[in-house]
């Protein structure tokens, strides 16, 4: 009887170890080294692992390559749960092993993916070299070759149930996004030079920045239309003692000139998304980081 069981174990483990199909899952830096491992110089195909499956249903191995943040964590958990048994996880890179560089100071990085899913092989370094990933895969193969069916069953039974209790909050997070429309298209505003004088009347020039008090949208629209500042490089928000200082960095392609317009906002600021479409992105970011409501 033992002979039969051990021979079944042998064949199963042999096939499992030699055909680890990874999931196409790369979040950041380590993903590039994972791609490099697939490429010609290192050739993961030698170990039969070049079959990268896009669907978790057909994958055996989750190479978690790159930082997992709080927003990504539910997706990672779901991917892991979608994978069929037996499934294995390699935590690639320092971020996934324990937070890595971001363990100390970041507010959004999960300190080690083993808080979310069970990990079979840890592969630190930032990022690991392709050779290291190949080594991790061989390590995992050795591990698979030694385990028995019963061990695997105990492992999955124990781990999954505890996991769901720990991460209950994460599972309920249903990928929903906040629908906050800051776009209300009304078209540009026409003004003349006197208008500009009035607009910039009580403005000051501090450190090369035009600091204005009000009428932000009108000013920027005017400058864009009349002086050809057609690229909004970025909007920078700085928390000062007076309030949040917003700096709009405008650039003119023709004249190769830059102008910075800045305004201090308390809780609300005028949206310039109808003037520059790219402002939507910046304004959303500032809303998230500083709580300024753009209207």
């Amino acid at each position: 009887m033992n002979v039969i069981i051990s021979s079944i174990d042998f064949i199963l483990n042999w096939s499992r170890a030699n055909s680890l199909w990874p999931l196409t899952f790369a979040t950041s830096c380590c993903g590039i080294e994972m791609m490099q491992t697939v490429a010609s110089n290192n050739d993961i195909a030698r170990f039969g692992s070049e079959v990268f499956r896009g669907s978790p249903r057909q994958a055996d191995l989750l190479i978690c390559a790159g930082t997992i943040t709080h927003k990504m964590a539910p997706a990672l958990l779901r991917l892991y749960e979608q994978m069929p048994e037996p499934k294995y996880v390699i935590a690639m890179g320092a971020c996934t092993c324990g937070g890595g560089m971001f363990a100390e100071n970041s507010y959004s990085v999960i300190r080690g993916i083993d808080k979310i899913i069970p990990v079979d092989v840890y592969l630190p370094m930032c990022p690991p070299k392709p050779e290291a990933l190949l080594d991790a895969i061989k390590e995992l193969q050795d591990k698979i070759k030694q385990e028995t069916l019963l061990e695997r069953k105990v492992f999955t039974d124990n781990h999954i149930s505890g996991l769901k209790e720990d991460c209950g909050m994460l599972i309920e997070n249903d990928f929903s996004i906040t629908n906050r429309s800051i776009l209300n298209n009304k078209g540009g505003i026409n003004m003349d030079l006197e208008e500009l004088k009035r607009l910039l009347g009580n403005s000051e020039l501090i450190d090369g920045k035009v600091v204005i008090k009000s009428d932000l949208a009108k000013t920027i629209d005017f400058i864009k239309n009349n002086y050809g500042f057609n690229i909004l490089k970025e909007i920078t928000a700085v928390d000062t003692t007076n309030g949040i200082e917003l700096s709009y960095r405008l650039y003119s392609v023709e004249d190769e000139e830059e102008v910075i317009i800045s305004i201090v906002a308390q809780n609300e600021a005028e949206s310039i998304s109808k003037i520059f479409d790219s402002a939507v992105a910046d304004e959303k970011e500032i809303f998230d980081m500083f709580g300024i409501n753009f209207i």
């Binding site: 943040t69 997706a75 100071n105 959004s108």
Partner: peptide, 16 residues
Amino acid sequence: DVGYLHRGMEKIAEKL
């Protein structure tokens, strides 16, 4: 929808 890799690079700078 972005932010799945937001590591707070700018905020970290203020602490280091």
